[in-house]
């Protein structure tokens, strides 16, 4: 454990991932410190979602190392990733949250149950504790009145805020967002971005894939520009957006 830095929440080292013949991640390195907000930008098909899916155990990498909250999810042995056992994997899952582009709320559960179900049945909290956590989060998301509604009766923006509350409920060390506002109408985007901005102010560690450039520039500490399965450029958010070094980054940003 001596080489584990307590202030590093996510460490991704030279990960490769192929689908059949297509190498979607071609050696990605990312380190995220506690309290840091990292935005990942880049053209579609560049591997951003795959990167998040690998970090959140939804896909397995072919080679490379992933460490989350000090626990080694997978480590490289002779050019192949070896994963930890199922027990540790489940433990690691409680250390992060993931917010999907299309929310993936459970439609048959009320808003409250969407948020409390994992608290009660995975984290073994009492119903009262879970409800208290849920109420606090709904207040924060400005959704106090919606606890007993079903997702189908909420707007897209409200659904996404519920899904953020669901991800926050288990008190994760880091939250990943995969284009959290891409499925939303422009007028609904604002509320969701505001919530994420507040989380950033509270020093929540976050990795956010987004196409909202001004949001990335203003809220993220650091931006990573990904294209063709590699990190083309990364740097302090404001600097990367206003003064990109690489041609590909310039070309991409010129589209915004």
């Amino acid at each position: 454990m001596s080489d584990v830095n307590n202030d590093i929440v996510l460490e991704i080292k030279d990960i490769h991932k192929s689908f059949d013949k297509l190498e979607v991640l071609q050696g990605i390195d990312i380190t995220v410190e506690r309290g840091e907000v990292v935005a990942v930008i880049g053209p579609s098909g560049g591997g951003k979602s795959t990167l998040l899916r690998c970090a959140t155990t939804l896909e397995k990498v072919d080679s490379g190392k992933i460490v989350i909250g000090g626990d080694v999810l997978c480590d490289d042995v002779d050019g192949h990733s070896v994963y930890c056992d199922k027990k540790l994997e489940r433990e690691i899952r409680s250390k992060f949250g993931l917010v999907f582009q299309n929310f993936n709320l459970f439609p048959h559960f009320s808003v409250r149950r969407n948020i409390t179900e994992a608290l009660i049945h995975v984290h073994k909290k009492s119903k009262e504790e879970a409800d208290a956590i849920c109420d606090g989060l709904l207040k924060k998301m400005d959704l106090e009145a919606k606890a007993d509604e079903y997702p189908c009766n909420l707007s897209g923006g409200q659904q996404q805020r519920v899904s953020i509350a669901r991800a926050l409920a288990t008190n994760p060390e880091i939250i990943f967002f995969d284009e959290p506002t891409s499925a939303l109408d422009p007028e609904l985007t604002k509320g969701v971005l505001t919530v994420i901005k507040e989380l950033a102010q509270e020093k929540m560690t976050m990795v956010i894939v987004t196409h909202e450039m001004s949001f990335a520039r203003d809220v993220a500490d650091r931006i990573v520009f990904m294209d063709g399965g590699v990190i083309v450029e990364e740097g302090p958010a404001y600097e990367l957006v206003t003064n990109p070094k690489q041609e590909r980054t310039k070309a991409f940003l010129a589209g915004y």
Binding site: T56, T57, L58, R93, N104, F106, V122, R166
Partner: peptide, 25 residues
């Protein structure tokens, strides 16, 4: 697929995912 993935990421076991999330729907 998103229903399975959301459940997985929240830490539900395979059986919990099946009986709580998938089967009722």
């Amino acid at each position: 697929k998103g229903q399975y993935e959301a459940a997985t990421v929240l830490g539900f076991s395979k059986a919990q995912t099946y009986f709580k999330i998938i089967l009722p729907q």
